[in-house]
């Protein structure tokens, strides 16, 4: 799912950044690399979101929040665990 859909006060892990090169690069430089934990601190109606990454808060615009793919911290592990169990 995209960061835009994430719940407030929840932590997620970055999967991929689907944005034009310039902005993707800036996000990566600020530490939003794959697997990094992102916490959603606040969000406005317009979609502008405050996130916390590696101890720093950033305000990101709606389109930026819409381009960051994240996943919930444990789902993947538990899902693969389940698959193993069922197999």
């Amino acid at each position: 799912m995209m960061l835009r859909e994430g719940k407030l006060k929840e932590g997620y892990l970055v999967e991929e950044i689907r944005l034009e090169d310039k902005i993707r690069r800036r996000l990566q430089i600020l530490g939003l690399t794959r697997g990094t934990r992102v916490e959603i601190l606040n969000r406005k109606k317009s979609g502008t979101t405050i996130i916390k990454v590696r101890g720093t808060r950033f305000a990101v615009g709606r389109e930026v929040a819409e381009g960051i793919e994240v996943r919930e911290p444990d789902t993947r592990i538990s899902r693969s665990d389940q698959r193993e169990v069922s197999a």
Partner: peptide, 10 residues
């Protein structure tokens, strides 16, 4: 209206 705000909040 592409909003690419990206700013550190100290």
């Amino acid at each position: 209206g592409i909003n690419t705000l990206l700013m550190e909040l100290p």
